[in-house]
Computed example of a mutant assay.
Amino acid sequence: MLRIAVQSKGRLYDETMLLLAEAGIKLNRGKRILLLSAKGFPVELLFLRDDDIPQSVANGVADVGIVGENEYVEKGAEAKVVKRLGFSKCRLALAIPKNEVYHGVEWFEGKTIATSYPEILKDYLKKKGVNAGLHVISGSVEIAPGIGLADAIFDIVSSGSTLISNRLKEVEVVLNCEALLIANKALTEEKQAILDELLFRFEAIQTAEGKKYVLLNAPKNKLDEIIEILPGMKSPTITPLADEEWVSVQSVIAESHFWEIIGRLKALGAQGILVIPIEKMII
């Protein structure tokens, strides 16, 4: 049984549960909300505060964990990063009052900065040669300048709307963050095998992101040009049709270039274009 530590609530919780569901991890819901086992797959979920996850994985209370990079770096726990998961993206940034004139990081010299991430901030300021005071608080960091607790803040920024509502502006990005899959450094062979299977499922999901499966009928005399547009994962699948002058073509395209590619295919005479979403992709 592989024990996975996950955040007990919040945006990271929601996206983690979605990933696990897509990977076929179905939970046995019950009265115990701290620890839940899965159906049909040898894992159980341990629900913790996000800042407790790195140490819990490092000391073996959990075997692996899904945690924000901000908490992983701040805690400095001896757990290894197994995979960057690509969701819950944000950044740790310095922000100052909107009406302040900012010319560089030297602005923070002698100032007081409110933060929930003192270790990351100390390391950054040391590298920049800036001496500043730190006011460590948890939660609602953004209100500190407005009530006179600090001159600036160092906190998580996603959309930036919270900064705007508190009349602050972002001036320095210190760390770009995303969800990480971390693991204890001393997993047994049995637990490593379960983790490898879980990674296989995660990678199949991630590979499919932003991809579309395309089927179309194409004139044979334009096939070479169409193949150049639709390379597929290795090469498109070509199937003969009853009409010897036409073939069926199947391939995968990136959604970001979808309309551009479809337009070029139509210009080359492609017909009956069918586009299908992809849930998983194994390569």
Rank of each mutant, 00 (worst) to 15 (best):
V61S: 14
R167C: 08
I120D: 13
V82D: 11
L168C: 03
H103S: 04
S165R: 14
Y72L: 10
V141N: 07
P54Y: 07
Y72P: 08
L94K: 00
V141S: 08
A114M: 06
G133V: 01
V57M: 04
R49G: 03
H103M: 05
A150K: 02
N166G: 02
V101K: 12
V101R: 07
L149C: 01
V173F: 15
D123R: 15
E69Y: 14
V81L: 09
K75E: 09
L92T: 12
E69W: 08
P54R: 06
P145E: 13
G86W: 02
D51R: 10
E170D: 05
H103T: 08
Q55V: 14
F108G: 08
G148L: 08
L163F: 10
G148K: 05
I53L: 08
G104F: 06
E119A: 09
D123G: 15
A62Q: 03
K169R: 13
Y102K: 09
I113E: 05
G60F: 13
P145K: 02
K128T: 08
V173S: 15
V105G: 13
V141I: 15
E71P: 00
V82Y: 11
E106F: 00
G148Q: 02
G65R: 01
N166F: 07
S116R: 01
S116G: 11
V67E: 09
Y124E: 10
I147L: 09
R167S: 14
S138F: 06
E71V: 01
E78Q: 14
N166H: 15
I66W: 05
K127T: 03
A144W: 00
A58N: 11
L125N: 08
